[in-house]
């Protein structure tokens, strides 16, 4: 298949999945009615318009934005660390967010109250603060450490440390509080309104702009830091911007949707199977598309049980992501970034 054809194919799949995603939901709306509403014609049932525009459309856009965000973050982390198992959460950002959110939802357990209640905005702000704190910690380490492997290990350790604190909170908290927290960790793509979507869109744009400015250095990171420097890349500056971009992207999604797992790890590998390149000039738009496609697909699958029951999104992303990554490794015998 020619390269141009592949791009058209990916865009076609994206549009198709977007439409299918719109057609799924607890209320049965005929496909033809959805098309009519999309063409701004009057719907037979006015409630349908509200359902489509305020619930399904926002959710589908959330899938597109969150999928693109996480995949771009994952691609940058895999390239920076030259590690195929790196993902957007490798710096411990998600763990930082989890800790902050768990403090809100379960801090009563240690007779100690942060914000009063777990309103969505309180959770989003807490998650952002958690991400930002870890980001600042990691940045401090990255200016101290020359090599990326040390940074990667510190990221994992920060993650392990915060998870430990979360475990203590879970152990001490009541069942209802723990359940609220557990539900948050399952991830959720619904429930965002158009204003929140606007924030998520801005975050994506900021992430894309920083990543695009790093195209050249991202490519040279594939050869390792010494070659990158020999080609004139200021690696400390480059590392700062790559971490900044990945942090903004991951932090934004985690704040609004919870910790969505696996998408950021799996999409770069899947995209590299379809688009045969290692050039980030091509890979960046490709993973944006790929991430949107995968998360739309996963969200459709969460609704397959029917009868108003919806599976948690993280269950599906891992259920799809894990076998796919295993298959990629078996097929190629080896896996490179």
């Amino acid at each position: 298949m020619g390269t141009t054809l592949k791009w058209f194919f990916l865009i076609f799949i994206l549009v198709l999945l977007f439409l299918i995603n719109l057609s799924f939901g607890s209320v049965d709306i005929p496909l033809i009615a959805i098309f009519r509403m999309l063409l701004l014609q009057e719907a037979e049932n006015p409630i349908w318009t509200s359902i489509l525009m305020d619930f399904r459309m926002t959710k589908a856009f959330t899938c597109v934005l969150a999928g693109s965000d996480l995949s771009l973050g994952g691609l940058q982390m895999q390239t920076l660390f030259r590690n195929p198992l790196a993902g957007p959460d490798v710096l411990g950002l998600t763990s930082g967010a989890s800790l902050a959110v768990s403090l809100i939802l379960m801090s009563n357990a240690v007779s100690f109250t942060f914000f009063s209640t777990g309103t969505p905005w309180a959770i989003a702000i807490a998650a952002s603060l958690g991400c930002v704190s870890v980001f600042i910690i990691m940045l401090a380490f990255s200016s101290k450490l020359q090599d990326n492997v040390s940074l990667l290990i510190i990221g994992l350790m920060v993650g392990a440390g915060t998870s430990a604190i979360v475990s203590v909170l879970q152990y001490l908290s009541r069942a209802e509080e723990m359940q609220t927290y557990m539900l948050w960790t399952f991830g959720s793509l619904g429930g965002l309104n158009w204003n929140e979507l606007l924030v998520l869109t801005s975050i994506l744009f900021i992430g894309i702009i920083i990543a695009s400015a790093s195209i050249k250095s991202l490519n040279t990171w594939l050869l390792g830091d010494l070659y990158a420097r020999s080609l004139g890349i200021d690696i400390n500056r480059s590392r700062f911007f790559i971490i900044l971009s990945a942090s903004v992207l991951t932090g934004g999604v985690t704040a609004f949707c919870g910790p969505i797992a696996f998408v950021g790890l799996a999409v770069p590998h899947l995209v590299k199977l379809v688009i045969n390149t290692s050039n980030h000039k091509v890979l960046i738009p490709a993973v944006l598309l790929g991430g949107a496609i995968l998360l739309l697909l996963c969200d459709i699958l969460t609704q397959l049980p029917g009868n108003n029951s919806v599976l948690p999104i993280n269950a599906i992303t891992a259920m799809i992501g894990a076998p796919v990554v295993i298959w990629v490794i078996l097929k190629n015998k080896r896996i490179d970034v």
């Binding site: 050249k216 010494l226 070659y227 890349i233 290692s278 000039k281 970034v337």
Partner: peptide
Amino acid sequence: VVLTNKVTAANMTVYELVTFGRYPYTNWNI
């Protein structure tokens, strides 16, 4: 420089690797 560090990258071709030599002369857009 040509160093001892082994270079691996998924999908990268010989031609692409040679073009890295021109990076010092290109702008951000390569």
